[in-house]
C-alpha cells in the first residue's frame, strides 16, 4: 500500500531524510551535551561568544551556510584538502557532507533547550550528590542528565524535525543526487518544478504530519511539570 502511494524515488528520498535526521540528532547530542553544559555552568566571558556562535545558524540564511560549507568541504577547501591527504573523497555532494551541514544548521535546536535544562538543574543538586560520595562524572550522569531529561527530549525532537525539513543547505551542499543526497524536501521541489502537484502533495502531507506528531511529543513531554525543578 505504501509502495502504491509513494513512487520508488519518493521512498528513497524519505529514507535518506529519516537517516539524515537520525544521524544528525545522534551526533548533535554527543557534541552539544558538553557544549551546553559548559555554556550553562561557566562564568567565563567566552560564554557570550559561545552563545552567539551557537545561535548563528538560527538567523543565517541556509544558502549562506551551505555556500561556505561548499567552499570549505569542496576539493579546493581546507576540509576537502584534508580529506584528500587522508586518502578520502571530499565531503561535498555526499551524505557525509549533508550530515555536517545539517548538524550546523540544527545545532541551536539542541544546544538551547539543553543549556536551559542544565541551568535549571543548578549547582545544589550536584553539591548534594558530591556529599553523597558521587564523583564528578557520576554526578553528571546520575543527577544532571536525568534532571535535564526534558531538555534532551525537546532538543532531539526539534533537531530531528528541523533536519527533516531542511532545504537550502542540502541543495547547496548535496546537489540533489537521487539515492545519495536527494532528500524528501528536495524531491518536493523537483515535483513542483515538473508541475507534478499530486507528487508534491504526497510528500508534503507526509512531512507535515510527521512534524506535527513530533511537536506533539515535545509539548506533551513538557506539559506535566512545566518547570523542571532540580530538587524538591
Amino acid at each position: 500500500m505504501i509502495a502504491s502511494f509513494y513512487s520508488p524515488d519518493d521512498l528513497v528520498a524519505l529514507w535518506i531524510s529519516l537517516k539524515l535526521a537520525a544521524v544528525t540528532v545522534a551526533l548533535l547530542l554527543l557534541l552539544c551535551t558538553p557544549l551546553a553544559w559548559w555554556l550553562a555552568t561557566t562564568r567565563s566571558r567566552l560564554r557570550v561568544l559561545g552563545e552567539a556562535m551557537a545561535a548563528l545558524p538560527l538567523v543565517l540564511p541556509p544558502t549562506v551556510l551551505g555556500f561556505y560549507l561548499l567552499l570549505f568541504l569542496g576539493p579546493y577547501g581546507w576540509g576537502g584538502r584534508l580529506m584528500h591527504h587522508l586518502g578520502l573523497q571530499p565531503l561535498s555532494f555526499s551524505f557525509g557532507g549533508l550530515v555536517i551541514g545539517s548538524m550546523l544548521y540544527s545545532m541551536p535546536f539542541v544546544i538551547q533547550p539543553l543549556q536551559a535544562a542544565f541551568h535549571a538543574v543548578g549547582t545544589r543538586a550536584l553539591e548534594v550528590a558530591a556529599t553523597l560520595r558521587a564523583r564528578p562524572w557520576d554526578r553528571f550522569f546520575t543527577v544532571a542528565v536525568p534532571l535535564a531529561r526534558r531538555g534532551f527530549i525537546t532538543g532531539s525532537v526539534l533537531a530531528f524535525a528541523h533536519t527533516l525539513g531542511e532545504f537550502g543547505v542540502v541543495l547547496m551542499l548535496g546537489g540533489n543526487i537521487p539515492g545519495r543526497t536527494q532528500t524528501a524536501s528536495i524531491v518536493i521541489f523537483n515535483h513542483v518544478e515538473a508541475l507534478d502537484y499530486s507528487g508534491a502533495q504526497r510528500l508534503s502531507i507526509t512531512l507535515l504530519v510527521a512534524c506535527f506528531i513530533l511537536l506533539l511529543i515535545v509539548y506533551s513531554a513538557n506539559r506535566s511539570r512545566a518547570e523542571v525543578a532540580a530538587v524538591a
Binding site: R124, A125, E127, T131, A134, R135, L147, V231, A232
Partner: peptide, 20 residues
C-alpha cells in the same frame, strides 16, 4: 580532598531531595 572523598554527611537548609 574533594567533597566526594570526605567521609561526611551534609544536610542542607532547604529540601534537597533528587526530584527524579
Amino acid at each position: 580532598l574533594p567533597t566526594h572523598r570526605r567521609p561526611l554527611g551534609y544536610v542542607f537548609q532547604e529540601s534537597s531531595l533528587f526530584a527524579h
